[in-house]
Amino acid sequence: MTEAVLFWLFAVVAVAGGLGVVLARDPLHGALSLLAAFFALAGLFLLLAAQLLAVLQVLVYAGAILVLFLLVILLLDLGPARAAASPPGVVKLAGALGALGLAGLLCTLFLSASFPPAVPPSDFGAVAAVGRVLFIDYTLPFEAISLLLLAAILGAVVVAKGKV
């Protein structure tokens, strides 16, 4: 019962936040909607017994990535969007219909699948268990990610300093 209430709360907030990102005129409002969606998704991760990922979602997405977005939005001071910036109605309609069609296709596919009841071990999703998987089964990708992050730091500094 509690699970159902929490699920519907988080699901509605997540989808409403996503709608806010797509519909908001001002990128600042879109970023704040995205923040709500990230928190709701962290709640959904918790319901799926992925505690570590829920914490990382709040720390990395809401705490780091979204703050970076807000910083850039405030730094650029874009002002009101030009009327010509909005694409013609037919493009909007085509984009919305295409995305809606894909989502509907995925939904029918997922709803037709049957899942056998699965009981996870008691430490499923805990930091120690995920850490064991990361450092034993995924050692090489983990090290590659550290190189990727280093390259991203250097790339961000170089690109933001120079002229494009």
Partner: peptide, 28 residues
């Protein structure tokens, strides 16, 4: 139900990338 929420969010994100013309909104 979780998968359907994921599909809906993916569709919304795809719609935003296709329709919106602001680079920041497309990134979000």
């Amino acid at each position: 139900a979780y998968l359907v929420v994921g599909a809906l969010l993916f569709g919304l994100g795809l719609c935003g990338v296709l329709v919106r013309r602001n680079a920041l909104t497309a990134f979000m």
